[in-house]
Amino acid sequence: MVDLEKLRTVAKETISRDDVKYLIGWRQGTYGFRVTPCFIEEPGEAEQLIFSPLCTNNLASYLIVTEKLPLPRGEKPDTRKVAVMVKGCDSRAVVQQLIEQGIKREELYIIGCPCEGVLDLKKVEAKFPHILDPVAAQWGKDKIIFQLPEGVVEVPREEVLAQKCLDCRDPNPVIADITLGEEIEAWGNGEYQDVKELEAKSAEERWAFWEDKFSSCIRCYSCRNVCPMCYCKDCILDRLNPSWIYRSTNISENTAFHLSRAFHLAGRCIECGECERVCPVDIPLMKLNQKFSKEVEEKYGYRPGIDPEAKPLQSSYRPDDKEDFIL
C-alpha cells in the first residue's frame, strides 16, 4: 500500500524540482466517495494529494487532453516536465502513448503507485446512498475499509471493486521514475470471461444485446474524451466534410460510432476501463474493448502498453500472420 506521508513528501520534492512544471494527482472530491484529478503547482498544495481505492481517474489522459494556448510572439515554450501519478493500468496508457510517439519520455516524470484495485462508484453509491460528507477508503486484506460518517465499515473487495480490477494483470506500474510502496502480486488470469460469455451466444442474441445498449447512447463522447488513447487532433467524429458518421442519434449512427470507436482502440486499448466508468448511460464498453484485447493477444501475442520498445500493433506485421478467414 502507498503510504500517504511518503506520497506527499515525494510529491513535494518532485514539484520543487526546477524541471517540473506541475504534478497531476488525485484529491478528495466535493462530496461522498468522489475523487477528482488535481494539478499541483506549489509544494504546499501537495498536502491535498491522496491515493486510495477511490482514485479511479486515469491521469494519463491529461497528458494528452490538456489544451495549450498559442504562444505569444517571442515567448519560448515551457519545456519542463509534467509529473504524473499512475496506477498500473494508467502506466500502460503512458507506455502506449510513448510507443505511438504521442508524448516524449523526457517530458514526463512518472510517479508509480502500485494499486490493489479501484472501486466501481456505481456499486459503492448503490450500497451507501445519500452520503454527502467526504468519505475516505483504504485497502485491507481482501476487503475495502470505508470511513463513513457513521463509522468504519468493511466490505469484501469483490462487492465493490470495478470489474476491470477484478481481472487485473498489471497492478504495478510498468514504467515509472519513482515507485511508491511495495510491488503487488498480480491476481488476474487473463481469461476474458465476459467476452467469452457473449461470444457463446448466437449472432442474433449478440445483436439484440448491443442494439439495446447502443440505442441508449447520447453521443456525449465522454468515452472518447476520457480515453488516454484517443488523442487525434482532428477526430473523425468532429469532421463534417466528409461526415462519415452523422450526428443524428439512431441505431445506425450510434452503431457506426461505437464500432469505429472500438476499432480505433484495437491493439491500443490498455484496459483502464475509463470509458465504461464515465458513460452516463452505462454502456458496457469494456466488453467491446476487451474483445480486441483478447483477439490481439490470442492472434498476435500482443499486449498494448507493456513494452515501450514495441511497435504499434496495426502498423507492424509478421509475414506469417494468421489469415484463416481470407478466401
Partner: peptide
C-alpha cells in the same frame, strides 16, 4: 475547470 475532459455529459443531460 482544469480537470474537465470536454465531454457533453453535463449539458446533454
Amino acid at each position: 475547470s482544469r480537470a474537465c475532459l470536454g465531454c457533453g455529459t453535463c449539458t446533454f443531460l
